[in-house]
Write a protein that binds this DNA or RNA. Structure first.
Length: 706
DNA sequence: GTTAGGG
DNA sequence: CCCTAAC
């Protein structure tokens, strides 16, 4: 339908129905979370190589070693797109409806081969292969074993037999929406899903979308997805849509917004509302509705998976000691807080996985994203939290309260003043995307992805906007330009810009240049900048910052968790803005192949103190050597940094130590007395174990004998 | 999630 | 400490 509505007249005699009108899509993507890691970060291509032979089988799981940046990015964009769509649809109506052509005289005529066009996008491939949930797209995804899924899907395929669906602008509108909705899925367009999404979009998307869809004139549609899209675009709209509609990876989905409905401050965090199943943890900071919760939940879960995929990295270096202090947070993240809040301190599970989330990253910005905690965790007392960074970018935390006092003494120029900002969103340069109506949603996705990827791949620049003005002088201090800790920083913005040094080469990743042309595509999407998107104010710092005895002291049972300080920071998120962002960027490893497979951040080494050893020995003497969890609970319950695995390992080393000559021992000497106890305990328990092994059916036997 | 054990 | 395998 609608074909006739095409302003063919305006298109200078082009009547051939074969000629399609190119849609010019202006996608101003705002708030692209670029949780991709350093600018030099290259998505690891090599799957993690098992360190041990038995790891061979682990290959099955190693698919995750794939680059996720593109995906992340896309997800972000998608979320944003969706959000923007919501916001800008209105404007679309105007331009697209009343004056489609005038909207932008860029209606291009182009011979479009309506035939299938196999398209391969590397970037897209990346995406697809990272989509761990591509379950829905099994059709194209070859599963974990084949990380690189060439999306050979033709446009037709992508859209399935309903390609006609996007034949008119109306459908396009829908498509766009669908795209946005599906971006987070980053799945290879599986026909059913695609069309499905599309349908859903037109059928069920209420409000703006439908409206737009209806209004978009056939063919000539110019969507100017621009405007001040807050990350706050509420997903609620979507919430009402069909359950099958994919949830956009809205920022809020990701961010571990634990803010419960009542916590509109955005900083007032509930301590333990992070139940995976309840997904109460991922509600919008301000708008919390049942509608959204579900979706957010989904998003959250998705994120969860992403997290698990190791692809998301957080800036750990910043929070050195946060390893401990943030433990809960981390864990929550990684584990989706499974019962962490409710259950006793069961050992730190998944410690390794959790850790994987933390990669070295010098840049850490609170973007309201996935990694809220790290930064937000710092926002202890609400308000502006002052943070100090050492030259390494390590955070030397100091909360606003105290810092403020001291800081004021320091004077204006005091370097002690640190501004904490929350970058709720990054503005990505405008993207101009031309895509034929006949393009599939899948291709649109790829196009957008490529565009974004290209930008990012070319290297990024961060722009700072203060009150709309771009601050170009990098040498000025924050204070000089008016960014001071005391100010309301709502006027502060950040943009992500293509690296100027990069020649804006046209995106060529597409195999069909005619098909897709993208503006503002600096370079090949070979690399993605990992800009960590840390959580915003909603961060979950409620974590029990329990005075865990991580200070080489024996955990005392009285080490009760301190009441989580509910932060009352202004909703203006706070974000760590490393004084030297350029340096920070520079610090980002440029290595293509991070050493430890994925540059996994190893936990800080924390040698056991004698006291700890003693506690361990004592516990083992009591409980035996096979109940590490109990040992942990018994003696190290409050030592969050000691997992039962750690204890087990320590015991192992203790035994070893006890058996070697004192000269061979290293580190803090352990009293011989303890070592002796270790040996005896070890002997005793191993003996017990042997007994059990030798006499397994003891009970039955006993019974029989009796 | 735990436990055990190699790295 | 890390990583897996096997429960």
């Amino acid at each position: 339908m609608g074909r006739g509505a095409l302003p063919e007249g305006s298109v200078a005699g082009v009547k051939d129905p074969c000629e399609e009108v190119i849609l010019i899509l202006f996608l101003k993507i705002v708030d692209a979370r670029l949780d991709c890691g350093s600018s030099g970060y290259e998505a690891p291509v090599m799957p993690h190589v098992p360190r041990s032979a038995r790891g061979k089988r682990s290959i099955r799981k190693k698919v995750e070693g794939k680059p996720m940046c593109a995906f992340d990015l896309l997800a972000t964009v998608a979320g944003k797109l969706l959000s923007e769509r919501e916001n800008s649809l209105t404007s679309c109506d105007n331009t697209g409806t009343s004056d489609p052509a005038a909207a932008k005289g860029t209606i291009k005529q182009e011979q479009i081969d309506s035939n299938e066009r196999p398209i391969k996008f590397e970037a897209f491939d990346l995406l697809s292969c990272n989509d761990e949930h591509s379950k829905s797209s099994k059709a194209t995804s070859s599963g974990p074993t084949s990380p690189i899924v060439k999306s050979e899907i033709s446009d037709e395929d992508a859209i399935g037999g309903e390609s006609k669906f996007i034949e008119d602008g109306r459908k396009i509108g829908c498509s766009v929406a669908a795209v946005a909705e599906n971006f987070d899925n980053v799945r290879l367009s599986s026909s059913p899903m695609e069309s499905h999404g599309c349908k859903d979009g037109s059928k069920k998307l209420p409000q703006g979308q439908q409206q737009t869809a209806g209004n978009a004139t056939d063919g000539n549609a110019l969507y100017s997805l621009d405007g001040p899209v807050g990350l706050d675009a509420k997903p609620s709209v979507l919430g009402s849509s069909d359950s099958s509609v994919e949830v956009p990876l809205h920022r809020n989905n990701i961010s571990r917004n634990t803010s419960s409905p009542k916590q509109e401050d955005g900083m007032d965090l509930a301590a333990c509302n992070d139940d995976d199943e309840n997904s109460s943890g991922c509600t919008h900071p301000t708008v919390v509705t049942n509608k959204t919760s579900r979706m957010q939940h989904i998003g959250h879960r998705r994120i969860k998976k992403l997290l698990a995929s190791k692809s998301w990295r957080v800036a750990p270096t910043m929070l050195q000691d946060s390893e401990t202090s943030n433990y809960d947070v981390e864990q929550k993240h990684a584990l989706q807080g499974k019962r962490m809040c409710y259950t006793r301190q069961r050992a730190q599970r998944n410690s390794s996985k959790r850790r994987k989330l933390f990669d070295r990253c010098s840049v850490s910005v609170c973007g309201g994203g996935i990694y809220d905690e790290d930064v937000s965790n710092l926002c202890e007392n609400g308000g502006i939290k002052l943070e100090a960074y050492d030259s390494q970018g390590n955070l030397c935390e100091a909360n606003g309260a105290s810092s403020t006092t001291t800081g004021q003494k320091s004077g204006y120029e005091s370097p002690e003043y640190h501004v904490k900002l929350s970058i709720k969103s990054f503005k990505v340069p405008e993207l101009v995307i031309e895509i034929p109506e006949t393009a599939t949603v899948g291709s649109l996705k790829r196009t957008v992805l490529d565009a974004v990827t290209a930008i990012l791949g070319g290297g990024l620049c961060v722009g700072v906007l203060l009150q709309g003005k771009k601050i170009r002088d990098d040498n000025k201090t924050l204070h000089q330009v008016g960014i001071s800790h005391g100010d309301k920083l709502d006027n502060l913005g950040f943009t992500l810009e293509p690296n100027p040094r990069q020649s804006p080469a046209p995106l060529t990743s597409s195999e069909d240049p005619n098909f897709l042309s993208i503006g503002c595509a600096p370079g090949p999407p070979d690399r993605i900048s990992p800009i960590i998107d840390q959580g915003g104010p909603d961060a979950t710092q409620f974590l029990q910052m329990c005075p865990e005895s991580d200070h080489d002291s024996v955990p005392s049972p009285t080490d009760a968790a301190s009441s989580p300080e509910k932060t009352k920071a202004n909703s203006l998120a706070l974000v760590a803005v490393p004084p030297m962002d350029t340096e920070a960027l520079a610090m980002v490893p440029l290595r293509n192949k991070p050493k430890r497979s994925e540059a996994t951040q190893r936990r800080v080494r924390r040698p056991f103190s004698v006291a700890e050893v003693e506690a361990l020995v004592q516990a083992v003497e009591k409980l035996g050597t096979g109940r590490w969890r109990d040992v942990k609970l018994c003696a190290f319950e409050n030592a969050k940094h000691r997992t039962y695995v750690d204890l087990k390992d320590k015991w192992k080393t203790l035994v070893h130590t006890a058996r070697i000559s004192p000269q061979q021992r290293r580190g803090e000497p352990v009293p011989q007395e303890l070592l002796d106890r270790v040996l005896s305990a070890q002997a005793y328990w191993s003996q017990q174990q042997a007994k059990l092994l030798l006499k397994p059916p003891s009970s039955a036997e006993t019974r029989l004998l009796l």
